[in-house]
Amino acid sequence: MSIGLDPVIHAPNRLQMCCMLAGVDDIDFATLREVLDVSESVLSKHIKLLDEAGYLKVRKTPSEGRVRTWLALTGAGRKALTGHLAALRSMMAGVPEG
């Protein structure tokens, strides 16, 4: 893993998740699953990893007789994503990360 890249965020699906979450306040589980085109179990694993790293806030709300799961990026998650993207872009430019 290169300097500046966050191993928790680095997996493609988790990077996509974080980038989407960074643009909104929160997204529900079903919408995220549709956009990423992954199974529920795969998404749940990614959520668990990000949650354990403190990058994700998970909230459950009742909605029309079922429970809906809402996901939001925490401040730490946003900071980690910003650093990760900066590292990716510097790799793209062929500039060594400071």
Partner: peptide, 16 residues
Amino acid sequence: DTTRMLAEVEAARGDL
């Protein structure tokens, strides 16, 4: 890999 990853991120955000 990096290019593909960034392209996937852009695609997901476009979908959103």
